[in-house]
Amino acid sequence: MTRLGVKVGSVSLKSPLILASGTCNFGHELSEYYDLSILGGLSSKGLTIKPRAGNEGVRVAETASGMLNSVGLQNPGVDYFIEHDLDYMRSLNTGVIVNVAGHSFDDYMAMIEKLDPHKDKIDALEINLSCPNVKAGCMSIGTDPAQIREIVSAMRSRTDLPLWIKLTPNVTDIKSMALAAQNAGADAVVLINTLLGMVIDIKTRRPVLRNNTGGYSGPAVKPIAIRMVAECSKVLDIPIIGCGGVMDYKDVLEFMIAGASAVEIGTASLIHPTCPVDITRDLTDYCKSNNIDLSDLTGTLELW
């Protein structure tokens, strides 16, 4: 393991950098830009039991330092993914994280039953309890500790695969959500998914997004994500994967100091597809010039 190597529970990753779900599809397109094997992992587009066309109309709205999306979990369905994309993801020589979404308790269980037989090709399941762009499931589950507990413990009893629970920041107390996931048997939590937002076109007096609201991401949300990682780090025993507005290596360091064991890169890939190459180089230089292993940084934050 090089100085960038990290562990998320039982999962060893060669780098803390994971491409966030929904910003890398299944890896095919970004492979045209760089060798994805430099990454710690790749989290697939959020998958559902049946294919989803996603939301109609305008799906993106720009802000001063971020963007809102309302894609609405467009995906080819888990069966198609297993047949066409899973082996490809495995061949990339990086961690394979499969993002699991659903509209109901039964959907999530059916997803586990579909994916568990392929556990030799999967490093972890990232359970999406946080997408804000669908009418049922996802965020509506992730804002209720009782439902988080119910769904995570039921998944726990159905698979030995590492369960990383991706949580929504659209809650009053993120710690109670993260603790519910931990107590139900989660292996890690991913903090955070997008924030629910709205952008209005002042000429038409209508929301820019056809779905009215969307998930806000980009550098604007980073301080919120950092705060939530820091808060949860003080109360959790399981590892945290940080996510939200990472644009450069300093952002990665910030997340790790706050308590993250690994860090996801999302919106930055939409602006500069090769940014993980630069971040990897800069993190390597940082470890060298400070003579440390990157994982030593995790949770070194000292509050005033």
Partner: peptide, 15 residues
Amino acid sequence: RMACGIGICLVCVCK
């Protein structure tokens, strides 16, 4: 309306 331009974000879809 587009974001990435390279096919990874799925915001610029046509029916």
